[in-house]
Amino acid sequence: MNADHQWNVRMTAILRAATVSTAVLVMALGGCSWGRQQINQSDLESRAAQVVAGKTTAAELEEAIGTPTSITPIGQNQLYAYTFGDSKTEALNLLIINIGKTNTGLDTALFLIDENSVVQDSRIGTNSKDLPWEWWAFGD
């Protein structure tokens, strides 16, 4: 009886320790994680598709894609600049090591507005387009 009781106590202690250890290990193993940060209007390129050089006015431009980040006078013209971008983070979280990588692309969309407030030219950056999800942090 006494031997049985001691055996039960030992088994209970072992089971309790195993449960705690397993719970801690499961929490620590984690897994993968993803994060995303979009800067201003990530869909600016598609919105700007309706802008036609020589036809779209500054007011129509602002209606389509919003107020510019900055307006710079260039002689009689004005340069409307919009900043936008994307940032993607992926990480592998293992028991004793985490490896993660963040890829960020920032872009500027430029619109040259003439003295009659009509868009004459535009240029939209593509740094943030098709940014890859990557977790491997090593190598160039």
Partner: peptide, 12 residues
């Protein structure tokens, strides 16, 4: 845990 983290901007 230890961690290796890399942040790359404007690679293009």
């Amino acid at each position: 845990a230890c961690a290796f983290e890399k942040h790359v901007s404007n690679e293009k």
